[in-house]
Amino acid sequence: MNVKKHLTIIVGIGIIIVLLWWAGIRDSIGLMLQANLKYLALAVLMYCIAILSWSIRWGVFLRGANIRTSFIKVIEGVFVGIFLNNLTPGARTGGEAIKALYIAKSSNGTYPKVFATVMADRILDIIPVAMLMLIAFIYSVVHGIKVLVWVLLLSLILLMLVVIITVVFSVKENYAMSLIMGIFRIFRRIFPSRLSNYEEKMESKIKGGIREFKSTLIGISKRKRDVVFSTLWSFVLWLSDVLRTYFIFLSLGSRVSLLQVLLVKMASMALAMISVIPGGIGISETIQSALFLAVGVEKTVAVSATVLDRIISFWAPTFIGGVLVLKRKDVLRLDKLSPK
């Protein structure tokens, strides 16, 4: 990890400290320490359900592509992807390539085939997000919440751009090649001692697997039953995400509505996508706190709930994913990825 990345993470943590100071550090910490454990446990349960839903959805695509691996490995792959995504600024796409590599080494699937399932999983994720975002946008317009109207409009625009870019890069061979090699070069800068000698070999492997990637992706799209089943799990994932934050507010004694939580979750998504700090550290906390203030939540409660939410949904899974990466250091050894 280079000095610049260290500095951005330090800046992000500094922003969190300033945010807590603004809300009242003693009051915020006191409120978090007094959180109702029953509701806090429900929030953790919602996060676990989200992870399981994500793993089941991805597992459907893996089985559809005739890739055989254990469900535990799929869950591990999700956490590895989360860990590496959280090291990536902006839209956080860096972990997608590596979690595909993780499963390719733990199954009978080739890297291009597994990566196609990752892309299908990412594309499908857009359906529930777009619907929930549209609901939040309509509500904001009807009730005249101008700040959220503009932020949600930005979110919808960015989401559409993500859809277009993802589809284009999935069907255009030269664009897909540039994307994958770009992601590789990001990780070469993060792990120069491990990856600096493998760029040529990686490029050769990807070129040879582009056709397999496309054919797998097309095959997945034709399995209508799998697509419908996975879409249902996508809704479970995102509703669990909203409920997690809702239960955190309840644990702090705040009677915020589910709709308020939905509004903020959808609105904060766009701004987190354009964050220059890895994982949106500090930025996400600040944005969500500000948006909760905009819907009428008291500042100490807004900041405390947001920080608690990030501990459960960002810091804990990042730690778990990091442990898995350390445990399976070979996941970053591209030279060990043999064709099957």
Rank of each mutant, 00 (worst) to 15 (best):
V3Q: 14
K4M: 13
K5A: 15
H6G: 15
L7P: 10
L20W: 01
L20I: 12
W22D: 15
R26H: 15
I29T: 13
L31N: 06
M32S: 08
A41W: 07
M46I: 02
M46T: 03
I51Q: 10
S53Y: 01
S55D: 02
R57E: 09
W58A: 01
L62E: 02
L62C: 07
L62I: 07
F71R: 10
I72Q: 07
V74D: 01
V74A: 07
V78T: 03
V78W: 01
I82M: 09
G90A: 14
E96V: 09
E96I: 06
K99L: 08
S106E: 14
Y111Q: 04
V118C: 06
M119G: 10
A120G: 05
I123V: 09
I126S: 04
A130E: 10
L134M: 12
I135S: 02
I138L: 13
Y139T: 05
S140W: 07
K146E: 14
V147E: 12
L148W: 06
L148V: 12
L152A: 03
L153E: 00
S155W: 00
I157M: 08
V162H: 09
I164F: 04
T166V: 13
V171A: 10
K172G: 07
A176Q: 14
S178P: 00
M181V: 07
M181E: 11
M181N: 11
G182T: 08
R185Y: 00
R188C: 11
S193P: 04
L195K: 07
N197Y: 06
E199A: 13
K205L: 15
T216Y: 08
L217W: 00
I218T: 06
I220Q: 05
L232I: 14
W233F: 12
S234R: 03
S234G: 14
L237E: 04
L239E: 02
D241H: 09
L250H: 12
S251T: 06
L252V: 04
R255Q: 11
L262E: 03
V264F: 01
A267H: 02
S268I: 10
S268K: 05
M273D: 07
V276M: 14
P278G: 08
G279P: 05
S284V: 15
E285H: 09
Q288T: 12
A290L: 09
A290H: 09
L293A: 13
A294T: 12
K299F: 15
V303L: 08
S304M: 02
S304H: 02
T306N: 04
T306A: 04
L308G: 04
F319I: 14
G321H: 01
L326V: 04
R328E: 13
D330S: 13
L334R: 03
